[in-house]
Write a protein that binds this DNA or RNA. Structure first.
Lengths: 222, 222
DNA sequence: CGCTGAAGCATTGTATACAATTGATACATC
DNA sequence: GATGTATCAATTGTATACAATGCTTCAGCG
């Protein structure tokens, strides 16, 4: 039940966009799959107009590829794009962590600590979905902690795209992930900007490396 | 005549979006001004549907503020947001320049050199519009040179928003701007990643500082 | 004179209908 | 048998029409 989706009185376009985004991130819609407006509008019980709005929004976010006169498909995140994504996101997570350490907001830090605790508890036992949700929560709070709305918007898009790419990562790295989260948060609490930034950058790179290795191993097994 | 706008067979939504974007960046539409769908559709001779698409796209880019049930207004870039914008853009321009230095693509470097030459020639005499256009061209090529499509997309949005904020900057800093462009390009040609990155980051910060000072001076004059 | 509230208007949100384009299939031709 | 071409179905692009909402104005009352 990780679907909070959208508030009841938001415009339909947003509701639909959240629905589709959810299905993409959950893997119910697979990369390359066509998103036909008529089908979606019938499925969701709305007209094509909000569906089109949603598809455009998702396209702007990079989750959907929108080709003129040819329709929409779920974005296929190639290894090249993943590398680009990681390069940019690693840098920005670094900036974000530095800012969070500088701002040093006790209220958000408290919430981060709580999420961290739950993440550590869940790292062993919980389902992949729950782990993903906690992961999102941690990074989302961290973004909030930097108090930079521009950065925040950009990063939320990047996080979703990397999540899409790494969806198969599952529970394997959970323990290591939360270890790293822990040290990032510690640096933020200390107000050690440089360390927080470095750790956050490394965190992204480490996760990407681990994923690449897992991928290689899977290939070798075939 | 810096308007290349959109290719003739692109969808109307894109055409309209380019039109409105142009009017915003040219200052014909001022921050805070309401963008009423009916009026725009009448003015541009299309129905409201493409206009809505355009407004959403511009909203995703940050040039337009879209409030549910309340319509669209030209984004008002507050000093706080400018600071955030500069913080992020400075970092990303740094990464971009580093990558450009690493890639080191002769074809693009040749084009950059050409633009640089024209920019230096124009720095003294040309109109503000022409200078802005050359500036866009230089940075646009530089983004291309990094060969990172993710970075490229993000930065083009950021550049437009900073351009909107600094639109009043005009010719004052032109000479200094192109001096800095020149040294950035030199570092890129040398393949000196670190220097190129540093200079590019500084370039953004310098421009922002200069603008802030100009603003203060203008205030003091009142 | 200011305040409250209801009616009307301006504007956005959504649905339906039509036009235009693309991709596929079947057929004819070499 | 391969290749080109015409026709058709599926799908997207755009326009128009209607519904829902928020803002403004102004009458009535305190």
């Amino acid at each position: 039940m990780t679907d909070r989706a959208s508030p009841p009185h938001a415009s339909l376009g947003k509701t639909v966009s959240d629905q589709i985004r959810g299905q993409i991130l959950d893997g119910k819609l697979k990369p390359g799959e066509r998103l036909i407006e008529d089908r979606l509008s019938a499925e969701l019980g709305v007209s094509r107009v909000p569906v089109r709005e949603a598809l455009q929004a998702l396209s702007a976010q990079g989750l959907v590829l929108l080709e003129p006169r040819r329709g929409a498909t779920v974005a296929d995140v190639t290894p090249e794009v993943v590398a680009e994504l990681v390069e940019v996101r690693a840098l920005l997570e670094g900036l974000n962590a530095r800012l969070a350490a500088r701002r040093h907001d006790p209220a958000i830090i408290a919430r981060l600590s709580d999420t961290l605790r739950r993440g550590n508890e869940a790292a062993g036992s919980a389902s992949a979905e729950e782990l993903a949700s906690l992961n999102r929560e941690f990074h989302s709070l961290l973004v909030e902690a930097s108090r930079n709305s521009v950065l925040s918007e950009i990063m939320s898009g990047l996080r979703e795209r990397t999540a899409l790419a790494f969806s198969a990562n599952g529970k394997l790295r959970a323990r290591q992930d939360w270890k790293e989260h822990s040290s990032i948060l510690a640096a933020v609490i200390e107000g050690d900007e440089e360390l927080a930034g470095l750790l956050a950058t490394r965190h992204v790179q480490n996760a990407a490396d681990a994923f690449a290795q897992a991928l290689m191993a899977a290939k070798a097994a075939n």
